[in-house]
Amino acid sequence: MGNEVSKKLLLQNQKQQFDEEGYVIVKGLLSAEEVAEIKNTFMKLHAGGPIPNCFSPVSEEEAKGDILKRYPRMMHPHRVNDLAMHYMLHPKVMDVLAELFGEEAIAAQSMFYFKPPGAKGQALHQDNFYLKVEPETCIAAWAAIDPADEENGGIMLVPKTNELAIECPHLADQNVSFTRDEVTIPEGMKVVPANLDAGDVLFFNGSVIHGSYPNKSANRFRRAFICHYAGISTTRIGQYYNPMYTRDGTPRMIKYNLDSGPCGEEFEEAAGPH
């Protein structure tokens, strides 16, 4: 599918920011009606209980005080739900991605994070450590379904780390992070918040260091629908991301990597989706 199907949605300075700093926020890319549809659908899915190979919530008693065990993230919901597939391939999202990649995008992964009050954050990491897109990198589209800020554990990122290679992680503090891998902030760089309103979409390069802190709010969820993409010219990806999908929903198989990536076998879990 060629670039002629895409529409220009970015301003010149937005594309420049993405190229220079590795990220850009597109305000109001999803309408209030679309945000409500996504929120309602995923809350109903959660209420329906476990979905094999997608998510496995447990009871309050089994969670033993860990709210994320009651509200775990959903992995690859596009494989089990038509609405998730629709929004993963949302025309406006695919249009922005075509501008950022300089070619049509193909979708690799969808996720839904509930992040209720009291939930842990996610240690700083780089997406392409997991996706292993070659020869270039992936891009994430992080759609805010609730307002996301520093109080409720909104996303944090390190500008200009898009210029870095993939860093090998160390073990994270699992008192504050539900994931175990963490990368170090490079000297001279700093973490900044990406505060978002519901319907805003944050796009960022697969080398950008990012993560989040715990949700410290009293009663605010920080729900987000997050998808990862590669350019249509991608030749390889991690083994858990096939089939990928073109804009019109056509499945596309890409050669996949079986190795553990640049950091050796000590982080073999990196081969799995995150």
Rank of each mutant, 00 (worst) to 15 (best):
G2V: 05
N3P: 14
N3F: 15
N3A: 12
E4Q: 14
S6G: 08
K8S: 14
K8Y: 05
L9G: 07
L10K: 11
K15V: 13
Q16M: 09
Q17K: 12
Q17P: 01
F18T: 14
D19P: 01
G22F: 09
I25V: 15
G28W: 10
L30Q: 01
E33T: 00
E33Q: 09
E37P: 04
T41H: 04
T41I: 11
M43W: 09
P52W: 10
P57F: 07
A63I: 03
D66Q: 10
L68S: 11
L68H: 10
Y71P: 00
Y71W: 13
M74P: 06
M75G: 04
P77M: 01
A84Y: 06
K92H: 13
D95V: 06
V96M: 06
L97I: 09
L97V: 09
F101Y: 15
G102V: 15
A108V: 00
Q109F: 12
Q109H: 15
Q109P: 04
M111F: 10
F114I: 12
G118W: 03
A119V: 14
K120I: 02
D127H: 15
N128M: 12
K132D: 05
C138Y: 02
I139T: 03
I139K: 07
A141P: 04
I145V: 14
I145S: 04
A148T: 02
E151H: 00
N152F: 05
G153K: 07
G153D: 04
G154T: 02
I155A: 06
N162H: 08
L164S: 03
H170F: 11
L171H: 14
D173M: 07
Q174A: 00
N175M: 06
F178C: 05
D181S: 11
T184D: 13
G188Y: 01
G188S: 07
M189W: 06
N195F: 06
G199A: 10
L202A: 04
F203M: 11
N205T: 05
V208T: 15
V208I: 10
H210Q: 03
H210T: 01
S212M: 03
S212R: 05
P214Y: 10
S217W: 08
S217D: 12
A218H: 10
A218D: 13
F221K: 00
F225V: 15
G231N: 03
G231F: 03
I232D: 10
I232R: 12
I237Y: 05
G238E: 03
Q239A: 07
Y240I: 08
G249M: 08
T250C: 02
G261V: 15
G261L: 06
C263E: 09
E266H: 10
E266Y: 08
E269T: 06
G272N: 15
P273M: 13
